[in-house]
């Protein structure tokens, strides 16, 4: 497979996952805002921006301006509209490599976002809009699995989604723990923990395992180490591991060692991690190390499969 094609598939998948994640976070936060007093609202939006790694804008901001910025602003490269446009542009570059159904679905989602009237968006429930984005992304994933060869290209799509998701969950946890653990007034925090779980669509899945008794150590354990929940860091790292193994087998690239070592180390760390150790030690540095390792894996994939130096490729 051409490196350019693999790269486009990988980014298409990452951008779409990012759009879906942002839509879900906004949806949960706008919803939860209804139960909050105004002074906690400021902190909530700060936390939301931190969980998307976006610096707070200069000057005053409110629910309206933040939502606009994260939804429609094309100058903000992490807005939903910008991410979906980027996903579509990547798909367009490799239209011959993906199925027509995939292209049509992504194009439809793109057109829906593009032609959404921004004033109407606020008059009606924004929830509807975020719901459409989330469902559109899920539908795309389903169509991809059902209509495309599960070969090398598909593995790059899996890889992109899992890597984006693992990083996003780690950042989300980090942002919430920094804010919540400093603040010990436990009563209002119950809602915040539920908000965190819902931001990962994890509330119902969590309840099935631990009942509705929401406790911080269990939330951490669930979102980091649960082996079955598809958004837990452990699960997504497992998906990355599988995709990278398949890619290494298919390409038999002479030197995938670096990628293998990095993903193996990350996998061991989440497979055998102990939640009490992390809670007693530095939660923040553990989560940061996961983010760092994801970034290293991304760079290694680029170096081994996409933008490898020509000298080494010629030497082997």
């Amino acid at each position: 497979m051409l490196s350019r094609v693999a790269d486009s598939l990988y980014w298409m998948s990452r951008y779409l996952e990012r759009a879906e994640h942002t839509a879900r976070l906004l949806d949960v936060n706008l919803h939860q805002m209804l139960d909050q007093t105004p002074d906690t609202a400021g902190r909530r939006w700060e936390r939301l921006l931190a969980s998307l790694r976006i610096p707070p804008p200069d000057g005053a901001y409110d629910a309206y301006s933040i939502t606009q910025m994260l939804t429609f602003n094309l100058e903000n490269s992490s807005s939903i509209a910008a991410c979906i446009a980027a996903a579509r542009e990547n798909a367009r570059q490799v239209r011959e490599q993906i199925s027509s159904e995939m292209w049509e679905q992504l194009n439809r989602l793109f057109l829906h976002v593009k032609y959404t009237d921004r004033s109407e968006f606020w008059k009606c429930e924004p929830h509807e809009f975020f719901q459409t984005v989330k469902q559109g992304a899920h539908l795309f994933q389903g169509i991809t699995d059902a209509t495309m060869n599960h070969g090398e290209g598909w593995q790059f799509i899996q890889l992109g989604r899992a890597l984006e998701r693992a990083g996003a969950t780690a950042v989300l946890l980090d942002a919430h723990f920094v804010a919540l653990l400093c603040d010990t007034s436990s009563a209002s925090d119950y809602l915040a923990w539920i908000g965190l779980l819902k931001s990962c669509t994890a509330f119902e899945a969590y309840c099935k395992v631990y009942t509705a008794d929401v406790r911080s150590d269990r939330v951490v354990e669930f979102l980091l180490f649960n082996a079955e929940f598809p958004r837990s860091v452990r699960f997504t790292v497992g998906v990355m591991y599988g995709a990278l193994q398949s890619i290494a087998n298919i390409t038999s690239m002479p030197n995938p060692g670096r990628v293998e070592r990095l993903i193996g180390r990350l996998r061991a760390s989440v497979d055998y991690g102990q939640v009490d150790e992390i809670m007693n030690g530095s939660m923040h540095s553990y989560l940061e190390s996961i983010q760092r390792q994801c970034a290293q894996i991304h760079t290694a994939i680029q170096q081994v499969y996409i933008a490898y130096p020509i000298d080494t490729a010629l030497a082997s």
């Binding site: 051409l2 490196s3 350019r4 693999a6 090398e152 390409t251 002479p254 499969y305 490898y308």
Partner: peptide
């Protein structure tokens, strides 16, 4: 050469 995921 062309650049592929399996090398040049």
């Amino acid at each position: 050469y062309m650049r592929t995921t399996a090398g040049l």
